[in-house]
Design a binder for these strands. Structure first.
Lengths: 317, 317
DNA sequence: CTGTTAGCGCTTTCAG
DNA sequence: CTGAAAGCGCTAACAG
């Protein structure tokens, strides 16, 4: 009987005993879809990531998952694997619909959002609809989505970008290359804005040759660095969109015969586990991936009070 | 009407048109649980991983997912996140039951299995039951589970371990430390057996001081290396359970004032993306993570013929 | 505390 | 080709 299995109803100890034994003998397993249909809610929570092979998302997903104990469903946005075509808008919506179809109890969207206007509007509409249907929506490491009812735990990408560049400027650098992420992504834009703020603050004029866009992976960092060096061989520092890109940059610099950090300094973003082993070690901005993920997971489960106003910036320790 | 949405039934173009418009206007979304209940099958496929924050699993999961397009559900076995207590047996079974409850269309179990006898039997029983219920079960990077009906795509951990150690022996090493993974794991045992085979082949007597067990993470590699050096400071090579462990080993060696590879050689396993950036670069065994994952995904979807006999060893390229 | 009953929203027959 | 009807296995509400 459902009453004993769900434990949300008074049952005599003796009856419970009897039911439990029967369950055991027939190794009966509750039918999830039937429960979900009858109760009009499933206990699934969806986690949307760009690419689960990327530790940036893996770490957040792991933290979220550890908080929602045994009912996770991580769904990749882009396929990852072979063709890494960056976050594909259609797929993001498709996955959201899938979760909506499953009547998910909660959905956590991780990482930066795409800024393509129509797509952003479509996602916002979808989030609102999910919220109305009773699904808790949490944005983790992603900017707020106004008027959707979604809770947001954001990172201070702009501030991080600014501090990183200020650090390099403090070291005496005046010609800094910048390898940005894909265009039309909030993460890309915010980090770049922070970088520019730092330059402006210190009266360094921007040179358009010093910025190049790429993907968030190592190969892209390698190629972009080659391009940067071609455009201006006198650069003394390279700021990368994230740590993977920074690793690619290091490889390209080494191949070009430059020593790090003697000839050129390299800076990254995210502070992924492998960064500490880069030799010589990388300057990078630590993002509280685990902390944010854990908190997002708890909010998704309704076990933690959402931040006042529904929005909070999670700071590194 | 379900007939047009599922497209598995002849419908007049005009009727379809009418339905589609209505769907659009009401932004109607199919009720997943209801479909699953009525049809007695869901289209979910579960992916079990030890720790999604570990790129070893992330890469496989990504590849699997890219093949099952839009119906993945990655479920972590151990929580990952903070306390990395290795794969917990109970949780593995719990997740399997969860998938069984959801009437998953398929389940992919990734990575090594635990060798604890009662637990292994319990898992085998569960897999058999899943298979009987019509769920396709695929083991990816995991040894076969006899008589369960599960398909297995295994890695040649033993052969890889052997070749790795032979490579080091070929370089002239005679005193090799070995940092093994957690005990009672197939992966750990197979790699270690390969290592020992290589030693035996070349007439090198094993010294019990040279082997130490740890976890599959960087910190463990760091600590184990310190222990190894304490036991025998004259080691000239360290073979690690995987690349993360190898990174920790490198750090410990450097701190102890040893140069790599001049004083001590280090070897890893898995060939994860960051390994290439370890300087000087790490000798490591490439595991076909993506290839195996992709194939496992296709088999799970019924889009690829399972290997003859249900078992295949996936080889690196 | 416990037995009974009416749906949940779909898929799948079975007749038109 | 299309309408109608019978469940799928469970939960929740209602009487005992």
């Amino acid at each position: 009987m459902s009453r004993v299995l769900n434990g949300n109803y008074p049952v005599a100890a003796t009856t419970r005993e009897r039911v439990l034994r029967a369950v055991d003998e027939l190794d009966y397993v509750l039918n999830g879809p039937a429960s979900a249909l009858a109760a009009a809610t499933s206990d699934l929570v969806g986690i949307l990531v760009n690419d689960i092979a990327d530790p940036f998302f893996g770490i957040m997903a792991s933290a979220i998952q550890s908080e929602i104990g045994g009912r996770a469903a991580v769904r990749g946005r882009t396929a990852g694997g072979g063709v890494q075509h960056g976050g594909s808008p259609e797929r993001e919506l498709t996955y959201l619909t899938l979760l909506q179809r499953q009547r998910a109890a909660a959905v956590v969207l991780t990482g930066g959002a795409m800024e393509n206007a129509p797509h952003a509007a479509a996602v916002a509409a979808k989030l609102r609809k999910l919220g109305e249907a009773g699904t808790r929506v949490v944005l983790c490491g992603r900017p707020p989505a106004p008027d959707t009812g979604a809770f947001a735990l954001t990172f201070d990408n702009r501030g991080g970008g600014r501090e990183l560049t200020e650090h390099l400027i403090g070291l005496g650098h005046r010609r800094l290359g910048y390898i940005a992420g894909p265009e039309e992504r909030t993460t890309t834009r915010h980090r770049l804005e922070g970088h520019r703020e730092a330059l402006a603050t210190h009266g360094i004029a921007e040179d358009p040759r010093w910025t190049v866009h790429g993907r968030y992976d190592r190969r892209s960092g390698y190629e972009a660095t080659l391009e940067l060096l071609r455009r201006d061989p006198s650069l003394t520092a390279v700021v990368a969109a994230n740590d993977s890109v920074a690793m690619g940059a290091c490889a390209a610099l080494r191949e070009s015969g430059r020593r790090i950090p003697d000839d050129v300094s390299v800076a990254g973003f995210d502070d992924l586990p492998f960064s500490v082993d880069a030799v010589p070690s990388l300057t990078t901005v630590r993002l509280p991936l685990s902390e944010a993920g854990a908190r997002a997971g708890r909010i998704a489960m309704g076990r933690e009070e959402p931040p006042p106003g529904g929005i909070a910036t999670v700071r590194g320790s």
